[in-house]
Design a protein around this nucleic acid. Structure first.
Length: 804
RNA sequence: GGGAGUUUAGCUCAGCUGGUAGAGUACCUGCCUUACAAGCAGAGGGUCAUAGGUUCGAGCCCUAUAACUCCCACCA
């Protein structure tokens, strides 16, 4: 017997412990059934999980549970992405110190201990949400084993020629003091000033106007560009121009990238103010002049401004130009600058020795890979393709930071040659370990590489890293491709892209066959959720505590794939109602089934109708979930369920209560139907609301089916062929019930009011007649008269209560 | 500038291969019905963003337009 009220706090905890202790979701390496492997997103350990993560993990969960219910062997690993800049930033904020203020080793130790705390929090949350990934073992992107895989990947790609080291322009964050990748850029609108400056023509008392937002870079001007079609200024090509204030001369070149409409149509070029400068530098073989040092201060080039910050220098230079009458006018503008997504600082371009993975020369393969993958929803594919088409930087994987996977690289002290670690010695830390062999030049002294790898250089290997937890084969492709990569749309250009790169370069294979892309949960005003801010949105912990894990999952499962949704607690009330209804309906139905064991019986008409409906539902349900249409699948089974409660159960409950009046066989038929349909529904609901379905299942069905859990019990397939005519005829019976209810409602009568008689006109009287006992009961009619003809229901006299 | 998405009832959203506009919620009217008042029954409520087109027939297909959201590019 089920409790009168469902106590979710107690039951959810009970079943979570039960699942955990009994390894209910364990992947079985020896199973013969098909494996469904999920490349679970490892949460980045850089703050607290918010509702957005919870909702997208819930989608993964539902899909994992669905495939488990289909009898597949689900490989659902778990891990943490706990190294790299995001984690460092989190730790810096927590301890209120910059990494550079501490000894490297000390900082790394603090990172390890701080992330451990967060990981414990993550673990508790995952468990309390009832997640069915393998919580007993997990990978970490900083663990020695992961480092080994990551370093091996580096060595292999280096040997294959995909990785190269170069002193080349790369994106530089002056705040984090490290290089970063194109995918880490974020646009930000800033107020800025367009400064119109006088560039005098050398030896003449004539000037041209050049507009710039970055006057502090005047110390690094290498040339001035005009448009090749600019007739008015064409004469300048033969002249030299004098850089204002700094007084040195630069040449003038023509390039079609110059926009005649912008500013004065004449552009100064520095190496490097922006992307275009970078291109011009290469195309016109311009000299490289570095205006800034790596910490965002002015370099010696800036003469008297050396050591000022970029912003300070900008002000100071403007002041100088004004004094020297070289500033013609200023215009306030809003323009977009690229900032570092981890700290919001505008990025600069720096020329430094960095490690790169070549992606630009493989755009075609990367693009084709995007075409071959199955994207859910499909339109998300465009984001990937768009990104690949617009790639303009090779993937810079070196970071001038502390907490990350080290490069397995030293440099010969004498000849400077790169010395790679031996594969069998991995993982290595070149700052502690030494190469085992002397350099080819004979020198035995080495300088370690102090840079660490970009965190994505490692997390792009999650299919291999997570497969290794079971295969123990390291960097290996035996489990590739995985069946599913799930993540939110922000990760398409980052994690998805990089994973595809690595998988293609290593194995010439796709990392997975399908991608499932979740949308964002935004705050009610539409702004982004962030791990660091609350935005007026409840935390997952709060929501689960208040509403239960099942209700929270119900909410998440109703969100459309790929679409952003504003968070609202109102939506949780539907889930609460649903869970309550499921409890009450199950309690009611099971109260009739206590000692019942199913056996074949000749079915009553409406029982057959419900079973046909169930088959119909089953087909659609499976089809939706196979296509990752989570919310549609849930809506479908939920609609069936409410119909089951409000129509079917109402129709048959008298039979269940009174076998003496309605007949033993008729009662048996209802029991048979209830038994199967409730069981089938519980199984279908189980991926969405795993706790309450388990509680109900365990109270009755588990013993009969002899299964450890509803979640490994398999769906109930009652046959795929549906008798449509039974469905239609049954609907007509419901129409009769509806007509009677309408009559009673309009006449403000209680639904139990009895009626003298009702007259039914229909072409299906034979069918309807067979339901007469049920119909009389639910309608409260003493007599039913049948007529052949177009469908019509006439209500006879009401029997007053006193009489009844 | 390129791309994607959205626009359907007061609100949140479904709507398949083109065939009489749907659900939940809110509001209104009733009903304590031997599971559930966190329930049940019933009613009202829509120029399917706009303008054209294709079609016997368009929420759906085509062409424009508008508004909002997101991604990318631009950043002199």
């Amino acid at each position: 017997m089920l409790d009168k009220k469902y106590n979710f706090a107690e039951k959810e905890k009970k079943w979570q412990d039960y699942w955990f202790e009994n390894d209910i979701y364990k992947y079985d390496p020896n199973a013969k059934s098909k494996t469904f492997a999920i490349d679970t997103p490892p949460p980045t350990v850089n703050g607290h999980i918010h509702m957005g993560h919870l909702s997208s993990y819930t989608h993964i969960e539902t899909i994992a549970r669905h495939h488990r219910m289909k009898g597949e062997n689900v490989y659902f690993p778990f891990g943490f992405d706990d190294n790299g800049l995001p984690t460092e930033r989190y730790v810096e904020k927590t301890i209120k110190k910059h990494a550079s203020e501490l000894p490297r080793q000390k900082f790394v130790e603090i990172c390890l201990s701080e992330t451990k705390k967060l990981e414990d929090e993550f673990f508790d949350l995952y468990k309390s949400a009832g997640f069915s990934c393998n919580l007993k073992e997990h990978y970490s992107s900083i663990s020695p084993n992961t480092q080994k895989i990551s370093q091996k990947s580096f060595l292999e790609l280096y040997k294959k020629g995909y990785i190269y080291q170069d002193k080349a322009p790369s994106l530089w964050c002056t705040e984090c003091q490290t290089a970063c990748a194109q995918s880490e850029l974020e646009d930000m609108d800033v107020q800025s000033t367009f400064n119109y400056l006088k560039f005098f023509i050398s030896g003449k008392d004539k000037y041209v106007t050049v507009a710039t937002t970055r006057p502090e870079m005047l110390c690094g001007v290498v040339c001035v560009f005009i448009n090749p079609n600019d007739k008015k200024n064409a004469y300048l090509l033969k002249e030299k121009l004098v850089v204002p204030h700094f007084g040195y001369e630069v040449p003038v070149y023509a390039d079609e990238l110059v926009d005649l409409e912008k500013g004065s149509g004449v552009v100064m070029c520095c190496t490097f103010g922006d992307n275009v400068d970078k291109e011009w530098q290469r195309k016109h073989a311009l000299p490289i002049k570095e205006c800034f040092t790596s910490n965002g201060r002015m370099s010696a080039l800036a003469k008297e401004f050396e050591g000022l910050s970029i912003i300070e220098c900008r002000k100071a230079v403007i002041e100088k130009l004004r004094e020297e009458h070289l500033l013609i006018k200023q215009e306030n503008i809003t323009h977009t600058v690229s900032t570092h997504d981890r700290c919001g600082t505008p990025v600069e371009i720096e020329v430094k020795k960095q490690w790169f993975i070549d992606v630009l020369s493989h755009k075609k393969e990367l693009y084709d890979a995007g075409i071959k993958l199955n994207w859910h929803p499909l339109n998300m594919r465009a984001r990937y393709l768009n990104w690949v088409e617009n790639l303009s930087w090779n993937w810079c994987i070196s970071r001038q930071r502390y907490y990350g996977v080290p490069f397995p690289v030293w440099y010969c002290k004498k000849c400077g040659k790169v010395c790679l670690a031996d594969e069998k010695d991995l993982p290595v830390d070149p700052m502690k370990d030494q190469p085992k062999h002397a350099c080819q030049c004979g020198c035995n002294e080495f300088v370690p590489e102090t840079d660490v790898m970009d965190t994505w250089a490692t997390s792009s290997l999650t299919p291999q890293i997570s497969a290794d937890m079971h295969t123990h084969k390291g960097l290996d492709d035996s489990m590739l491709p995985f069946d599913l990569r799930p993540n939110a749309h922000d990760n398409i250009r980052v994690w998805d892209f990089y994973t595809i790169v690595k998988s293609l370069y290593h194995f010439n294979k796709l990392p997975w066959t399908d991608l499932m892309i979740s949308g964002y949960v935004t705050s009610p005003d539409g702004s982004k959720l962030a791990k660091s801010k609350a935005n007026g949105v409840s935390s997952p912990q709060e929501v689960i505590k208040t509403y239960s894990a099942d209700v929270t999952r119900y909410w998440a499962n109703n969100l459309a794939l790929g679409k952003d949704t504003a968070f609202s607690l109102i939506e949780f009330d539907n889930g609460k109602k649903f869970v309550n209804k499921l409890w009450n309906a199950s309690k009611f139905v099971l109260s009739f089934l206590e000692d019942y064991r199913p056996r074949e019986v000749e079915l009553e008409t409406m029982d057959a109708w419900l079973l046909e409906n169930y088959k119909n539902l089953y087909n659609r349900f499976i089809k939706h979930l196979d296509a990752y249409e989570i919310s549609l699948a849930l809506a479908e089974v939920e609609r069936f369920f409410w119909n089951f409660c409000d129509n079917y159960v109402e129709l048959v409950k008298r039979r269940l209560y009174n076998p003496d009046i309605f007949g033993q066989r008729q009662c048996e038929s209802a029991k048979y139907t209830c038994f199967h349909v409730l069981l089938g529904m519980l199984k279908m609901f189980s991926p969405f609301v795993p706790h309450i379905t388990e509680e109900i299942y365990q109270s009755y069905y588990a013993g009969i089916e002899n299964k450890a859990s509803v979640h490994v019990s398999g769906y109930l397939n009652l046959g795929e062929k549906v008798d449509k005519s039974v469905l239609e005829k049954g609907e007509e019976v419901l129409d009769i019930v509806s007509a009677v209810r309408q009559f009673k409602s309009e006449n403000k009568l209680s639904l139990k009011t009895e009626l003298e008689d009702i007259t039914i006109t229909s072409k299906n009287c034979d069918f309807i007649k067979k339901t007469e006992a049920d119909l009389k009961g639910v309608a409260g009619a003493r007599k039913i008269v049948y007529k052949d003809g177009d469908f019509k229901v006439e209500i006879g006299k009401v029997i007053e209560e006193e009489q009844a």
